[in-house]
Design a binder for these strands. Structure first.
Length: 609
RNA sequence: UGGGGAUUAGUGUAACGGUAGCACAACUGAUUCUGGCUCAGUUAGUAAAGGUUCAAAUCCUUUAUCCCCAGCCA
């Protein structure tokens, strides 16, 4: 259905009418794939469908972020939809920046996202650019032999000076040196006979090109550094432009998908492969580079350099700080991979640069968690309520629904007693008109328990409410409506609030996250993200009160694939149990991260007033 | 200044010469033992100007605005 011939040209993005909600989404990339299929450009499977082989090629020099997830999802999705393959490839051509730690984290994150490169229908495997160094060297020497590359002894600084301007060509005094000399020097470069930076191998293209990428770009530089994969085997390393097309070629990649800033590199990508193929009997595979607009999201900074800085400067607690836009940050915060995938699907893939509202990511998360997260009651900012007409020492257990979205999840028992906690937000001494919660003289429903009415409050010397006195109506047991009065009038209650029995409450630390930046486009105004940091991005609640069922793993809890327990704390938001928790300690030490709050229309009303 | 791209409601995204649609946001209302979810509805768009055509978001011309490019980073 991906080509959607049943609805016009049908290459539209979005769900195909008449298909299940999780039906594949198509993009302009699918158009290209289907056109290639018609032209049999890359060959076909037995059933006539076009061959598709994609890859995700991160450099292991940092952690993956939400922007990468767009690339991962689109590459994996394209392969999956077209019965193709998807490779994970480490583009490890710069030993100065790359580390094993990043390799491990990237593998973990790509897998978590669901782009399984090792198992499953689209698994293509794990590859390394560094495994191709020998082949790349051979091809480079081939270009030297053909007079298409030369060794240049200009220093980096000199190259920069001689780069020229749009109207002034670049220059290099080494451009026309004899082929034999370049052959010898390139060999010497490899053999380590020259120090770092002494010379480079350059492609001989066009020093006057208005596209600076074609002004004899560097193919190899000397770097006397140990590589995390090849160790000391090499002291020359290929540049991205030279390496990437060869990597794609060797892996049989059909569609080499990258971001828009590489558009100016495409002529170079093609020039390199064509030059290798020049007068070659057996041509090497030439994959097609296609660019798309990278993901940008409001209030989020997505640049590896800056993320690294935030980690190193201690602005956040690490790469997986729940406030970080890294994949591991979102995971720790409680986001599900399903919701990130849904988000990527939602924003689509185009060549138009856009800025996505962070709310759409939050919505995707709420959407998924609403369906699957077990409900619990938790009071984040507790204030004590005494129910004066409820017998001292008595405990009742009420059945509370585990997930109104999923009846099969059943219900659990929640203990109730004379003293309970409610959230401070759910009481107002002088409420405005539309306040439906507890206030002096008004009545609310305690979820799954009783209706209570406020009959008095106590305050400390500073005027803070320390205690709320209430009475309950025994006829509302289980939260049910009481029978109609003698006049036949059904008494009603506008609000239902959550609560936790004081004697049974489990203490927990709750971490409330806000956006890391105060402005939609961090660092845009001053060029320095530090100016835009939100100092209140983390609020820690030390003594939240949670219903006791939280200590056991409930029958209603899903078998979370990543092992992270997630809940909806009713009327508050979605929360995930953090790895800092010590559930087996006595008493248990629980730490919850607020993944995302529930939508709060009351807050909106209150803000307006 | 040279080259390469982009431009459809507030934000994204469809429509590939033939009815400008969808999602999210916003706003109404209904429903509700979560001010959640759900449901119903409303608002709102082809950057501008010319041209070709029976017909233009789509083709042509000009203009405007935005993004990318002068690393031995990727």
């Amino acid at each position: 259905m991906r080509h959607g011939h049943s609805h016009g040209h049908g290459h539209g993005h979005g769900h195909v009418p008449g298909q299940p909600a999780d039906a594949p989404t198509t993009t302009f990339l699918d158009d290209i794939v289907s056109r290639d299929g018609e032209l049999k450009r890359w060959g076909t499977h037995a059933d006539g469908t076009a061959k598709v082989h994609t890859r995700f090629p991160p450099e292991p020099n940092g952690y993956l972020h939400i922007g990468h997830s767009k690339s991962i999802c689109l590459n994996y999705g394209l392969a999956l939809r077209n019965k193709g393959k998807f490779n994970l490839r480490f583009d490890d051509t710069n030993p100065a920046k790359e580390e094993q730690e990043y390799v491990d984290a990237i593998k973990r994150d790509v897998k978590w996202l669901g782009a399984d490169f090792e198992n499953g229908p689209a698994a293509g495997g794990v590859f390394w650019a560094s495994d191709y160094f020998e082949k790349m060297y051979d091809y480079a020497m081939d270009l030297v032999n053909k007079g298409l590359a030369y060794v240049c002894e200009l220093s980096g600084e000199e190259v920069s000076k001689r780069r020229g301007t749009p109207s002034v060509p670049a220059t290099s005094p080494f451009r026309d040196r004899p082929i034999a000399e370049s052959q010898r020097l390139f060999k010497e470069m490899r053999e380590g006979k020259h120090p770092t930076g002494a010379m480079t191998l350059r492609a001989k293209i066009d020093l006057a090109s208005p596209n600076f990428n074609l002004r004899d770009p560097v193919m190899y530089r000397i770097l006397h550094e140990e590589h995390h994969n090849t160790g000391k085997a090499w002291c020359i390393y290929p540049m991205y432009d030279w390496a990437h097309g060869i990597e794609d070629s060797l892996e049989g990649i059909t569609h080499s998908i990258c971001t828009l800033e590489f558009e100016n590199h495409r002529p170079l990508y093609d020039w390199f492969i064509n030059s290798i193929n020049q007068s070659r009997a057996e041509k090497i595979h030439h994959s097609q580079q296609i660019e798309f607009a990278k993901l940008q999201i409001t209030y989020i900074l997505l640049s590896k350099r800056n993320l690294l800085k935030m980690v190193q400067s201690g602005t956040v607690r690490g790469w997986d700080d729940p406030r970080m836009p890294t994949i591991c940050g979102f995971r720790r915060r409680g986001y599900t991979s399903e919701s990130i995938r849904a988000f990527c699907d939602d924003v689509g893939v185009t060549r138009t640069e856009s800025l996505i509202d962070i709310g759409r990511l939050e919505n995707a998360c709420r959407d998924h968690l609403n369906k699957v997260a077990p409900r619990r009651m938790a009071v984040l900012d507790p204030v004590k309520v005494v129910i004066e007409n409820y017998p001292e020492g008595q405990v009742e257990e009420f059945e509370a629904v585990n997930n109104p979205e999923d009846e099969s999840k059943g219900s659990r028992l929640v203990p109730f007693s004379r003293e309970i906690f409610i959230d401070r937000d759910d009481f107002m001494e002088n409420p405005p008109k539309k306040f439906f919660r507890l206030a002096p003289g008004t009545e609310v429903r305690l979820r799954a328990a009783y209706w209570i009415k406020c009959v008095g409050i106590e305050k400390d010397a500073n005027g803070n409410i320390t205690l709320i006195r209430c009475t309950y109506d025994a006829a509302t047991r289980g939260g049910e409506n009481p029978p109609p009065g003698p006049d036949g009038v059904q008494r009603k209650v506008k609000g239902t609030i959550h609560w936790v029995s004081a004697a049974h409450a489990v203490n927990a630390e709750v971490r409330l996250f806000d956006r890391l930046f105060k402005v939609e486009e961090p660092s845009k105004a001053t060029g320095n993200y530090v100016d835009d940091l939100n100092p209140d991005a983390l609020k820690v609640v030390a003594n939240a009160k949670i219903e006791p069922s939280i200590l056991q793993i409930g029958k209603d809890e899903p078998a979370w694939a990543d092992g992270i327990r997630r809940f909806q704390f009713e009327r508050t938001g979605y929360f995930a149990l953090d790895a800092d928790s010590k559930p087996d300690a006595k008493p248990a030490a629980l730490v919850f991260n607020r993944t995302v709050s529930l939508k709060d229309t009351w807050a909106k009303i209150a803000d307006k007033a």
